[in-house]
Simulated assay, not measured.
Amino acid sequence: MARQRVRIMERMGRAERTAGGEHRPGGTGGFSPLLWVAAAYAWRLIVVGAAVYVIFVALGRFHLVTLALFLALVVTALLEPLTDLLDRWMPRSAAVTAGLLLGIVLVLGVLSLVGATVAGEWQGLSRELEGGVTRIERWLERGPVHLRHGTLSQLQSWLSRFIATHRSSLFNTAVSGLGRLVDVLTVGALALFCSVFFLHSGGRMWRWFGGQLPEHRRGPARIGGRAAWTTFTGYTRGIVVVAATNALLVGVALFILGIPLVVPLAVLEFFAAFIPLVGSPVALAVAAVVALAAKGPLAAVVVVLLIVVIGQFEGHVLHPLVMSRAVRLHPVVVALSVICGAVTAGVLGAVVAVPLVSVVWSVYGVLRTTDLTVPTP
């Protein structure tokens, strides 16, 4: 830092002497050297901030394409080990096809299991929820809250009147949701299409991209790209292991407690775990509401305690054991990343924020500690 400041002041002094101006002490034109250094860094930060803003605007403009590419990278990171294993006994094209088919069958099987479970338990769950609402109302009236009698009934009638009054707007929202469904199908098709090429010839595509760069930029690009992919694959596979473990623990606990909809709630916990620090408690809060309606306050309290236990287990055991090599970020950085991502792009931003920050930090770390003047193999 000090040497860089000295170089900046020397360049300023030479510029003043070249221009024939009066040379003041320090070569800073009468201003404080600290002010010159701050100004030199300020305009650079402004340029970097403007570039980041333009990138985010472009990504937001083409958010469907960005989402499809992100999903394709996730699929590639998850299926690459299986594809490489199958590649030993069959051609690469057949290995990619088999890996993708197995992944699609697994996802459709889980969704079918969830649908069958909800359909099979729906009637019994409706009766339990009706009785649970009555129990909750009695508990709120007689418990420490002392809710006025008939408040929940009035709330239910108000909700019915609201739905009847705003039926047209709700219908328009549902119709717009069909447009969202088309977007989801488009993103899924594009992600699957890109996944095929990433799994089949992703290495050749990256080498081609590196070949388009100037000679002195190819080494840093190769090193940074390797670090970025290692971090991304480590994070993706690690978060899947963490999410599956959380879902298994939640499913077993809810089954022991006799809570209905065990499989859908466990699947909800699996997908919610992809949002660090926030997703898992939200999913378990939904399970607590179902437990409160179906089994009463005691079961809901047990589920709330389960939130604390699983949170501690995830933070102190799973993440350090599974993801310590891929993600070396302080929990405060993770929390701020999730919040900033959610504010910027909603749920998708919360999911993408941590892997994005992890990749950027790993690339910065490897480029900072690598001597780029030595040719890389």
Results as ranks from 00 to 15, higher is better:
residue 91 P to L: 06
residue 117 T to I: 13
residue 66 T to Y: 13
residue 92 R to Y: 02
residue 105 V to C: 14
residue 90 M to I: 04
residue 74 V to Q: 04
residue 47 V to T: 08
residue 71 L to E: 04
residue 99 G to P: 02
residue 100 L to T: 07
residue 93 S to M: 12
residue 119 A to E: 15
residue 109 G to F: 09
residue 68 A to Q: 02
residue 98 A to H: 05
residue 99 G to Y: 01
residue 48 V to Y: 01
residue 86 L to M: 04
residue 56 F to E: 15
residue 85 L to D: 13
residue 114 V to R: 04
residue 94 A to C: 09
residue 68 A to G: 05
residue 66 T to W: 15
residue 59 L to Y: 03
residue 76 T to W: 03
residue 104 I to W: 15
residue 49 G to R: 09
residue 112 S to L: 12
residue 52 V to A: 10
residue 112 S to H: 14
residue 114 V to L: 13
residue 44 R to D: 11
residue 54 V to K: 15
residue 93 S to T: 07
residue 104 I to P: 05
residue 111 L to F: 14
residue 78 L to H: 04
residue 45 L to M: 10
residue 87 D to V: 00
residue 89 W to L: 14
residue 51 A to K: 10
residue 104 I to N: 12
residue 46 I to P: 05
residue 102 L to N: 07
residue 50 A to I: 07
residue 71 L to Q: 04
residue 48 V to R: 00
residue 67 L to P: 00
residue 91 P to Y: 06
residue 78 L to D: 02
residue 62 F to V: 04
residue 116 A to T: 08
residue 89 W to P: 03
residue 121 E to Q: 14
residue 53 Y to V: 10
residue 102 L to G: 09
residue 50 A to S: 10
residue 74 V to K: 02
residue 101 L to I: 15
residue 68 A to I: 02
residue 53 Y to T: 07
residue 100 L to E: 06
residue 100 L to G: 06
residue 109 G to W: 10
residue 49 G to I: 05
residue 75 V to G: 01
residue 105 V to G: 11
residue 79 L to F: 01
residue 51 A to R: 08
residue 87 D to H: 07
residue 82 L to H: 00
residue 116 A to F: 11
residue 115 G to I: 09
residue 70 F to C: 03
residue 59 L to S: 04
residue 77 A to T: 03
residue 109 G to Y: 11
residue 96 V to D: 00
residue 92 R to E: 03
residue 110 V to R: 13
